[in-house]
Structure formats: structure tokens, C-alpha cells
Computed example of a mutant assay.
Amino acid sequence: MKSCFTKESKILAHNEKEILYSKLLQSAKEQEEKLQLRLKEVDGLLKEAESCLVALEADCNWEELETGGSVEMVKGRSLEEELENIKAEEEQLKRTLSDLEAENEQMLIWIDQLKEEEKSYQELLERCDFTEWEMTEWSEQRAVFSFLYDSVELTLGFGPPIEGDKFGEDPSRKIVSLNFESLLDEEKAPPSSRLVQRLIFQFIESQGCWQEKCPTMHHLPQALHDVSSVVSRCKVLGEEIEFLERWGGKYNLLKTDIDGTKVKLLFSSVTAHAKFEVTLSLSASYPAAPLPFTVQRQIGNIGEKEISAVLSEVPVGYHYLRRTVSSIHQNLLQSPR
């Protein structure tokens, strides 16, 4: 009985399973059909969405082109205006830079000119430093000053001291005597030194009575300055003559001779086929004025006319004698005549 019941139970269970599986299969088929329909609908929707998307993208792209184009045009115009402004600013900057460069060049030229002026003024100051004296003695009764390596001596005699002047330096104190004396050894001194000494005393004698020019100590600084200025100029002249005696050959200068206050310069040039002597008359005012001269022609065609034309172009001033010799050499003795 149990076995029949078991079999019947198995058959019923099998049948129920069969019915259930049939229902499940039917349900699955229905679901499959619904799914297929849904898939078709979705596929249609996808295709429709895709076509809509394509159309939408086309519309969007066109709108973007139109909208973007106008924006780009506006931006383009703005950029063009900005570019034009930048170009204008660039041109202005170039002009400004060019002006600055020109100003810089002018400034550099001006600075160079200032440096040259500074150099010339410095040289002038050095030349105009007329402190050519040294005080070798000072007492209540007298004072002694020396010039030009102790070759010129100035002796002052003072009057009675003024009441209350403990040190004897009151500017109103009188000078009762004033004498210049040459201490140069004429026999041993070179010609240039003797010439310088003559010119200095030429100036001293030309001033008349020095005691009248310098009656009190108040006038002493000016007197020392006046003598120092002449001593300084004449000392430079002596150095120029010594230079020409040593290096005159570079300027076709055969000989430099001194006669009193005159300097004789003998020139000779094979190239110019010329030989002549120029005599320059010196004075204590040297080098403030052109020098009177004479010319003695020995060989060739160079004479007073040619020398006069050259010397007229030589400005007076520092190293006037050397520049005169150099000018004659450069303009008259460098080529055949």
C-alpha cells in the first residue's frame, strides 16, 4: 500500500510539476514575447532617439556656428582693435625708444665733452697754480721769499710793528723796502735757464717801483701772485727749450740757439729741399701773444711768407713754442716744395 501511495504521490507530484513547468513555460513564453515586443519598442525608440539626436546635434551645431560665429566675430573685432592699439603703442614705444637712444647718444657726447673740459680745466688749474714761492725767513724786521729753485730772491723790510700786533702780521703794517735779487750762477747755468732769468727780471723791471705797488702787508699776496705767474710761465718756456734741444731732430730742427731773449731755430729737410732759420723774439708776457719773428732762408723756397701763413694758424697758450715748431714741421717740411 505504501509503495502504491508512494508511486501515486510521485505521479501526482510529477503531474503537478508538469503542470507547473507547463505554466512556467507558458509564462516564460509570454514574458519572452513581451520582452521581444519591449525590445522592439526600445529599439524603435533608440532609433528614433538616435535620429532625433542626429537632428538635434545638427541643429545645435548650426546654432553654435551661428551663435559662436557672431561671438567670434565680436571677439575678432575686439582682438583687431586690441591688436591695433598694441601696434600703436608699439610704434609709440619705438619712437620713445628712438628718442631715448638719441638722447642717450647726446648725453654720452655731452659727458665726453664734460670729461674733456674737466681735463682741460684740471690742466689749466695745474698750470695756474702759481705758488712758485717759498718763504725762507720771517721775523719782526724782514721776510725773505725764494722763487725758481732758489734762483730768484725777494727780500722785504717791515716798518715798526703796530700797537697790539703781537705776531707782526697786521695787514696794515708797512713795507719799507722790497728788493729782488738773482742768485743764478750765469757761468754754470744752461742757456735756457739764463733766458728764463732774463725774462723774469724783464717783468720785474717793467713794473717800476715795487714798493709803491706793495706798500703794506695787505698788498703782499698780490705781489707774490704776480711774480709767481710770470715765474711759472717762464719755467714752462725753459722746459720747452730743453725739450727742443733734446728732441728737435723729430721736427727737422737741426739747432736751437739762444741770443739774449731771442730763440733761433734752424730747420732743414731733404724731403722739402729746404733749410732756413726762424728767430723768435720772446718776452715776459709769453705765451699770451704771438711771437715776432724773422726768417733767414738758406736753401729752398720757404721764406717769411710761408712761415707767417703757418704761424697765423697756431693759437697762443700753453706750449706755444713747441706747437709752433711742430706746425712748421707738419705743414712745410713733410713734402717737396
Rank of each mutant, 00 (worst) to 15 (best):
T155I: 12
D165Y: 08
F145Q: 02
F180G: 08
F145V: 00
E169W: 05
S151V: 03
I175H: 12
P161V: 13
S177G: 08
N179P: 02
I175K: 00
E153I: 07
R173K: 01
D170K: 06
E187I: 00
G159Q: 10
G157V: 09
K166N: 11
K166A: 11
F158L: 13
A189P: 01
R173W: 09
L184K: 04
P171S: 06
V152T: 06
P160I: 13
F147V: 00
V144S: 03
P161G: 10
S182N: 07
S177A: 07
F147C: 00
I175M: 00
S172Q: 15
L184S: 08
G157R: 15
S146T: 00
L148M: 13
G168E: 14
L156W: 12
T155C: 08
E186C: 05
F145R: 01
L178A: 02
A143I: 00
P190D: 14
A143S: 11
S177N: 11
R142M: 07
P171M: 01
F167T: 02
E187Y: 10
E181A: 08
N179R: 07
L156P: 15
V152I: 10
P171N: 09
L154H: 10
F147I: 00
F145T: 01
D185I: 11
G164M: 12
P160F: 13
E169P: 03
E169M: 13
V152E: 01
D150C: 11
A143H: 04
D185C: 03
V144W: 05
F158H: 14
S182Q: 03
L178K: 02
L154Q: 04
P191K: 05
P160V: 07
V144Q: 04
R173Y: 02
K174S: 06
D170N: 06
V176Q: 11
K188G: 06
D165C: 03
Y149N: 03
G157W: 15
F147N: 02
I175N: 08
G159W: 13
T155A: 06
P160L: 12
D165A: 08
D165S: 06
V144G: 01
I162Y: 14
L148E: 12
V152S: 04
A143N: 05
L183R: 05
S151H: 13
P160K: 15
G157M: 12
S192T: 00
I175A: 05
D185M: 02
S172P: 14
S151E: 09
E181N: 06
E181D: 03
S193F: 02
A189L: 04
L156N: 05
E153D: 13
F158P: 14
D170S: 06
E186N: 09
F180I: 02
E163M: 01
Y149H: 11
I162H: 15
E186W: 09
E169N: 15
L148H: 08
L178M: 09
Y149W: 09
R173M: 04
L148P: 02
F180K: 07
P191H: 07
S151D: 01
G159N: 12
K188R: 08
E181H: 10
R173V: 01
E153Y: 06
F180A: 05
